[in-house]
Design a protein around this nucleic acid. Structure first.
Lengths: 235, 235
DNA sequence: TAGATTGTTAATCGATTAACAATC
DNA sequence: TAGATTGTTAATCGATTAACAATC
């Protein structure tokens, strides 16, 4: 990723892009990949909508935030649209990340193909545990936390993946900010909030996700309740 | 969890509860725990709002979906409200889960304290890999995929955590549905969609989350851009 | 009682959907 | 040209915020 300037895209008529739209971009990315794998050349908003379980209107509206990627009467060219979405999502921008915390989760992440697939380069792993330091996981060396600042000076990173214990999240995030890191992928469960809108935080709260599932399991929708009752009276 | 009937709560004047509200409930759960740990007896919507970076109005609106948990002029009793939220989220309902896929992620999850903390009981792990079968991780035995149906017959589970390869997600989910499972915590990256609204799916798409972070790193907000430009001209 | 803070209604804001003219 | 499908505006829907009366 280019660290000296931040000019983007060129022609794009970027107005304000809502959070909701941003969250759908990776889904477009994934479904377009499926179409490419299937060898489809073109796709209409209607077809894509059926695949993705959203409306065609929403797709056209979303894509038009970034420019006219389609063609009237034809639809969208799959590989062209895919290329555009990749560009938007920074695939190929050479984004560099470090992982802080080499516990079960940190190690599972670095061993996965997730980062490579999306063009994110993991340059280092850090941990406090002396038993881990020096070991290599998924081709990445585990370093001491003392090396954090000197390493970042030599190898500027765009983001840090936080997979360390909750109580260390805030102090470590502060060190990372001081070391020039501007993005956090935060798995710690301790939410990070900054006023500065140059600092980007993506929270992954697995516990919250689990509980929302629990809620829906415990509180069936009215329709489901009704059906359940009918089954009950059948027996 | 009670498998024979699905009566809920009792007095609650449950109308429709939106997805947005459901997703905030686990946050209330977490922040109330913090207040309890600190020994606070009462909290006002304003105080809680400051902690959570949301508006007091939203908190009052949210909680009133489920009934009047507060008291005018006083605020909310922390432990009472916490108990109510726990009840809503099914903590203590004895929810039972199995994990399908004992790879890095499946093993990382079962070894974490996440499930225990939220009253979810992991009763089994399943995998196809003969080298893993019979081993115990986080106190849970890894079983063969052939045991899936017989095990579920003997030990009905409420949900399955899907941590297996993408291409197996759909066929395995179908087997689980046939075996009576109604909830999926889906880490596979292959989205599951069912018409039946008794079937609950919670998608965790780590790749999508990472990409949305990438997007925001590559596209600084207008404010941030302006500031960046000023810094640039200073040097 | 006076002060505080909820519960709840009304106003605002934003996101989704529908409709259709533009155009390939 | 006729048919298809986008780009875009307008209508609808839902969620958030503001306001204030109820009440502890």
């Amino acid at each position: 990723m280019n660290h000296s300037k931040n000019e983007i895209g060129a022609e794009e008529n970027r107005t304000y892009v809502s959070e909701a739209v941003i969250r759908r971009l990776p889904r477009y990315f994934r479904y377009l990949r499926i179409l490419m794998r299937e060898g489809k050349m073109r796709v209409s908003s209607g077809e894509l909508a059926d695949m993705m379980h959203i409306t065609a209107s929403q797709i056209r509206q979303d894509l038009n935030c970034f420019g006219g990627f389609g063609q009237q009467g034809y639809g969208y060219n799959v590989s062209y649209l895919y290329a555009k979405i990749c560009e938007l999502l920074g695939v190929g921008a050479g984004i560099r990340a470090i992982i802080v915390g080499a516990g079960d989760l940190g190690r599972a992440l670095v061993r996965s193909s997730m980062f490579a697939k999306r063009g994110v380069d993991i340059t280092a792993l850090f941990d406090v545990n002396p038993a881990l330091i020096g070991r290599t996981v998924g081709g990445v060396m585990i370093r001491s936390m003392e090396e954090l600042e000197p390493f970042c000076r030599e190898n500027p990173a765009d983001m840090a993946v936080l997979t360390l214990p909750k109580d260390q999240a805030e102090p470590v995030a502060d060190r990372l900010l001081a070391a020039g890191i501007r993005g956090f992928w935060n798995f710690t469960g301790k939410e990070l909030h900054y006023d500065d809108d140059e600092i980007v935080v993506e929270e992954i709260h697995l516990g919250d996700s689990l509980m929302s599932l629990n809620y829906r399991l415990c509180h069936p929708s009215k329709d489901a309740e009704k059906r359940q009752a009918e089954i009950g009276s059948d027996t």
